[in-house]
């Protein structure tokens, strides 16, 4: 299993892109503009998520010195 934080964020991008692709395909199947509108919303959400996520990755790398997702385990829920 990949535990690199950069790869986790990139995989989130791929999943969001797949969801947007499904929306656009459905919108073009029934000839409705709602699917493309939903893709624009997904695009805005992905941009916000990437900005905050990459800032968090930079902070975690400065604190822990690694990109391992298991390194950030101070809370131990």
């Amino acid at each position: 299993m990949r535990r690199n934080l950069i790869f986790i964020l990139m995989s989130i991008e791929v999943m969001l892109n797949a969801a947007g692709l499904a929306f656009v395909v459905a919108g073009s199947r029934w000839m409705q503009p709602d699917g493309q509108v939903m893709f624009i919303f997904i695009l805005a959400m992905a941009a916000a998520e990437v900005a905050v996520g990459l800032a968090l990755v930079l902070r975690l790398y400065h604190v822990h010195g690694s990109l391992d997702a298991d390194a950030a385990s101070e809370m131990r829920g």
Binding site: I6, L9, M10, E13, N17, F39, I40, L43, A46, A47, V50, A51, L54, V57, L58, Y61, L67
Partner: peptide
């Protein structure tokens, strides 16, 4: 939009962070 925002803006952010780290 996919090319401009995803491949143009978000991927540039990723490249910046990978080079910064």
């Amino acid at each position: 939009l996919e090319i401009i925002i995803y491949a143009g803006a978000i991927m540039v952010l990723f490249v910046f962070v990978v080079m910064l780290l």
